[in-house]
Design a protein around this nucleic acid. Structure first.
Lengths: 347, 347
DNA sequence: AGAAACAGCTAAATCCTTTTAGCTTCAAGC
DNA sequence: GCTTGAAGCTAAAAGGATTTAGCTGTTTCT
């Protein structure tokens, strides 16, 4: 039966079931909604329909249901946060909560919102259903894209409200931290503590933001000390990757008295490697992260962060998204948010 | 203008714009899709339409677009993970990834899936748009519900594929850890280490699962030692809440040589309170968590966990969800997954 | 002058479901 | 024999947007 459904050319519709059982579409719909009692369908008919529904493998078309079911007096607005599967959800969930808050404030009779998170495979944003023909969302926030996705976006202007978080793309409203600032401040903190052998820890696959942080860090260190910092490259961006990479570096006896990790996941792994090597944070090695981990404050010792200032970023994103939807803003703008520095015990 | 749009009775449709400008709906649609060049609309007309679109505050109806835009040869299936805003996303994102993996495996010509996370305000699941009339999802996984939501679900059988994670509801397929097991094992570990004054740390607002963990823990301790463990209640479930609650307990001089935290967020906060009090983990106070935190392995010391075994749970959920959608399973079943124990350094 | 090309637009069909109003047939009641 | 009621079903409209085919004038070419 299942195989039969699989091999069918077209999706099964209510009409096809109706034809198959020789009844009307209305009868089928009635059964699907479990309202055959109140509408007095004969039990035998109900059974025949049920069987056909099962045998043909019917799956309702939600778009059609929605169109039909919705109250024509109310406006239903669909918002999405688009992020890659591979990325952590911390910032995303903050954005979601804030979007929801603004949506709730505008919800009333005649207007309501649905906010959801949809994920794409990193580098394959273009394959996401309904993106191009605007048939899924009234407005989206896009984040955690890879270079391929950026290229796709740059080449296609999506015909609805789009705010891009953390990337610069000329044809969209973009919100991101002030270029170069984060890496520079991180370098200043480490050098300010007297670090002589700073190290930067990055994942192998750099995004626009991580690349820029590393770059600015190196540039600043070079400018102030004349030499480039060591670069330690982790296989991925999990704590495990970070721990392995740093362990290898420390194990090889190469010096390190200050570490800048371009994501907090890596910093967390670095903590473990540093402690395993018998070094103290911050006495032997000072550590600076970026504040993209929910619990940076509960690291041991608490992690000093130079990073995007999340409240401001989220606020900007949401304001722009709603402005775009109201057509109050027309031209794309780039918004740079200065980094926030949170000094804690690790540096 | 915006005010005007706000006060309108009904949502603005393409037809309303058309009437307003005295052109046909086709013309308006053409302009909305930015295809007026290829379809040779007069620039003046385009401008008039554009102005009306702005003035009337048109927002497209995505359900209608989707119905029209979709390729009738392909079946589009919409899956959702429904969770509350307040809950952490760790397990949710694992479920999502696994659902997506199974969906990808079944995607082909003629069949594709969208998976998304939708959030509800804790206790107000019933207000989620499209839940009741099945006009939003073909199948959902529901989790992180509060008692009010559970009551709502128990009273309403949603007419599509639903799997409930972490709760027992008679009318749905439920997947959850074996009742009582987690708390019991946690107690055994602490008592096995010779703890005499075990403490259980819980949030003030208990869910089915947290309540049960605490209960089973207490029962086991009572059975083996004759006395109930101390109960420390945190205001919420963040690390900060946990730290505050435990600090108060330790500060008051009440004893504690073993701690069971019913969520890892609380355990993380507890670590801080314990260290601040100058006590060592696990020497002075052993700690057991539940493994719902992504990085329990990178706590310092790594957190010993007795908790749901996530791979198994996620696998069960996804299997059942797809079975339900294929109508291969009809009756609701309860699936209990035995807890997994991960001994690390904290106990 | 007549044919062809073009500019600028519209009518109607289509996507899939659900619901409303109402049609047929048969049985019971007067 | 005629009305009434119920049982069991159907036809058709509606929901909003998009697209296809095609219509009406005007201009250009021969």
């Amino acid at each position: 039966m299942a195989a039969m459904a699989r091999s069918d050319k077209r999706p099964v519709t209510v009409h096809m079931i109706a034809k198959h059982v020789s009844v009307s579409a209305s009868a089928v719909s009635t059964v699907l909604a479990d309202r055959h009692e109140e509408r007095r369908l004969a039990p035998a008919t109900v059974e025949r329909i049920r069987k056909a529904v099962r045998d043909l493998g019917y799956v309702p078309n939600v778009a059609a249901r929605r169109l039909r079911a919705h109250d024509p007096e109310v406006h239903h607005i669909e918002l999405g946060i688009l992020t890659s599967f591979e990325a952590p959800l911390f910032l995303v969930s903050r954005v979601l909560r804030q979007v929801q808050r603004m949506a709730d404030a505008r919800t009333g009779p005649g207007r309501n919102f649905s906010v959801s998170i949809a994920m794409f495979h990193a580098g394959r944003l273009r394959e996401m259903a309904g993106l191009l023909n605007a048939s899924r969302f009234n407005g989206v926030v896009i984040t955690n894209t890879l270079p391929d996705d950026d290229a796709f976006l740059a080449a296609t202007t999506l015909p609805y409200a789009v705010v891009v978080l953390g990337r610069r793309l000329p044809n969209y409203c973009c919100v991101l931290d002030t270029p170069g600032e984060i890496g520079r401040r991180a370098a200043e903190i480490l050098l300010g503590r007297g670090c002589r052998r700073p190290v930067v820890l990055t994942p192998a696959l750099l995004t626009q933001s991580t690349a820029e942080r590393a770059e600015a860090f190196c540039t600043t260190v070079r400018a102030k000390t004349g030499t480039d910092p060591a670069r330690v490259v982790a296989a991925g961006f999990t704590p495990t990757n970070g721990a392995e990479a740093l362990r290898a570096h420390l194990g090889a006896g190469r010096g390190c008295d200050g570490l800048y990790a371009v994501t907090d996941g890596l910093a967390l792994g670095a903590y473990q490697a540093i402690k395993d090597a018998g070094r103290k944070i911050p006495k032997d090695i000072a550590v600076v992260g970026v504040g993209d981990h929910e619990h940076a404050d509960f690291f041991d010792p608490p992690l000093t962060c130079v990073g995007p200032s999340n409240e401001t970023i989220v606020e900007q994103i949401v304001t722009q998204l709603f402005d775009l939807m109201n057509r109050r803003r027309v031209k794309p703008v780039e918004t740079f948010v200065p980094p926030s520095v949170v000094m804690r015990a690790s540096a």
